[in-house]
């Protein structure tokens, strides 16, 4: 009985509406935290493990020496490498494929790499549409990602270096 009366008073005095409006009013003047993706981005840890890339040395030579340690360590068997002797006698890959459907983004490949060739960048907004093949990124694609994002990769690695 007494509870029913309490509820009636609360309902007719619009107290819930008022407390809601109070928050709205407060947020109207507060600083905004919404990020306008993709124009705006949240900060990302330098250790973030996103899309893979193959890096080059500053002189333009590709780093990867086809040691296949990433292939060996990959727990999801997502990496496929074929190697050969390039004309100049160095050991190089002829094929370097990562299957992004299989990849679990554990970062072991990056850990295993003796020449810091394969890295996981901070890129996460990639998408592949259409066939199954779209999920497999090949060597040319990986090198291109590396070329485009070398600055970002370099910065992230430098930031993280002091903790390693």
């Amino acid at each position: 009985m007494i509870n029913n009366i309490k509820k009636l008073v609360k309902d007719f005095s619009l107290s819930e509406l008022r407390s809601g409006m109070k928050i709205t009013a407060k947020e109207l003047i507060n600083k905004k935290i919404t990020v306008q993706f993709p124009e705006e981005r949240t900060p990302i840890s330098p250790r973030f493990r996103g899309l893979h890339a193959l890096r080059r040395y500053p002189n333009g030579e590709e780093r990867c020496i086809a040691c296949k340690l990433c292939e060996a360590v990959c727990p999801a068997n997502a990496i496929t490498i074929e190697s050969e002797m390039r004309e100049d006698g160095t050991r190089r890959t002829t094929q370097y494929d990562i299957d992004l459907f299989k990849c679990i983004f554990c970062g072991f490949c990056e850990e295993a790499c003796p020449v810091d060739a394969i890295v996981e960048t901070q890129i996460f907004d990639y998408a592949f549409v259409g066939s199954r093949d779209g999920s497999i990124i090949d060597k040319a694609h990986l090198l291109e990602i590396g070329n485009k994002n070398e600055k970002m990769i370099n910065k992230a690695k430098l930031e993280d270096a002091k903790y390693r």
Partner: peptide
């Protein structure tokens, strides 16, 4: 066999 495969493969 040079540079063809790693032994564990």
């Amino acid at each position: 066999f040079r540079y063809e495969l790693r032994t564990w493969q």
